[in-house]
Design a protein around this nucleic acid. Structure first.
Lengths: 163, 163
DNA sequence: AAAAATATCTTGACAATCAAACTATTTGGA
DNA sequence: TCCAAATAGTTTGATTGTCAAGATATTTTT
C-alpha cells in the first residue's frame, strides 16, 4: 500500500468513526427529542450574540426554507426562541433558551472530551505536527475550492487527468 | 487558543470542507441522476465479488429496508443489478453494471486526486507523521468505541467528567 | 413614490430513514 | 423427518431533511 492509499484509508475511516461516535454521544436520554442535525443547528446559533436566520442557514449550508422548518420544531420543543429585530423588522433573531444552552454545552463538552482523548494519545510534538499538517490541508481546501465568501468554484478533481 | 482548541477547529473545518467538496465533485453531469448517498452505496458494492444486501447495509450503517429502496432506484437507473444467489435463495447478490462501475471509478478517481493534492502540499516526512498521528486516532476510536464486530458500546464522553 | 432588493415563511414534492409486519428460505433440534 | 426458530430480503407507514418556487413584509435604491 502506498503512502497515498494509506492516507486515504485513514481519512475515510476517521470520517466514518467520528460521524458515528458523535451521533451516538450527542443523542442521549436528556436530549432524546432532538436529532444530530438539530444539535448542529444549536451549535450554529451559539451562545453569543443572537444570530438571524440567513446567517445560521449559511453556516449550515441549507436554504432559509429548510431552516425555518427545523427552527419551528426546535421552538416547539423549547430549545430556541425567535425574536423580531427592532432595527430591521424583516429579521428574526434566534436565541437559545436555557434548555438550548444546555444542549449547546453538552455538544461542546463532547468535542472537548474527544480532543482531549485524541491528544492524550500523542506527545506535544506529535500534536504540533498533526496541527501543522491539518492546517495545510484546510488551507488548501479554502484556497482551491472557495472564492472568498461568494459562490464557490469547484475544480473537477475527478476529471483533472482525463479530459 | 490552546493546542486542543486548534486541533478541534481544524478537524471541524476539515470535515465540513471534505464533505462539501466531495458532494460537489461527485455529482457531475455524467452522474447527475444519482445522489451523494447513491455514490457511496456504489462504492460499498464495489467491483470485486458481488455483495449481498445485508453486507452492504451494514457497511452503510442502514437497515436492509432502507437499502432495498435505494437499490430499487439504482436498478431502475441502470447502475446495479440484483441476482438471486444459487446456494441460498434468500440471498440477493448486488452487482454493478458497466454504468455502475464507471461511477465507482469516478468516485475512486476523486479520492486519488484529493489525496494527491493533499500530499503534494507536504514533504514525505510530514506525510509520514500525519499518517502516524491519524492512525493513532483511528486506533483509539476502534479500541474505545467498537466491540469487535458486534454491537458497539459507546462511552458517554460528554458525561465522563460530570456524572 | 415606485421599483428592486432582502429576510423570512409557506407549500408541494422528493429522498433517506426506521420500525414493524410480511414472505420465502434455510437451519437446528426433537 | 418435520416443525420451530432464525435469517435475508421486501413492503408499508411514518418522520425528517431537503430544495425550489412563490408569497409576504420590510427596507433600500432610484
Amino acid at each position: 500500500m502506498t503512502l497515498e492509499e494509506t492516507l486515504n484509508d485513514l481519512l475515510v475511516k476517521l470520517f466514518k468513526d467520528i460521524l458515528e461516535v458523535e451521533a451516538k454521544c450527542l443523542i442521549t436520554e436528556e436530549f432524546a427529542d432532538i436529532s444530530y442535525n438539530d444539535m448542529h443547528i444549536i451549535e450554529a446559533i451559539g451562545v453569543e450574540e443572537p444570530r438571524n436566520m440567513k446567517t445560521v442557514a449559511n453556516m449550515m449550508s441549507v436554504t432559509t426554507g429548510t431552516l425555518t422548518r427545523a427552527i419551528d420544531a426546535l421552538c416547539e420543543k423549547g430549545y430556541v426562541v425567535r425574536r423580531r429585530s427592532e432595527e430591521d423588522k424583516r429579521v428574526v433573531k434566534l436565541c437559545l433558551t436555557d434548555k438550548g444552552k444546555s444542549a449547546y454545552y453538552h455538544h461542546e463538552q463532547f468535542h472537548r472530551q474527544m480532543i482531549k482523548n485524541i491528544s492524550s494519545e500523542m506527545t506535544d510534538k506529535e500534536a504540533e505536527v498533526l496541527i501543522y499538517a491539518l492546517a495545510k490541508v484546510v488551507d488548501f481546501f479554502q484556497l482551491n475550492y472557495y472564492d472568498t465568501d461568494e459562490e464557490a468554484e469547484f475544480v473537477d478533481w475527478a476529471n483533472i487527468n482525463n479530459e
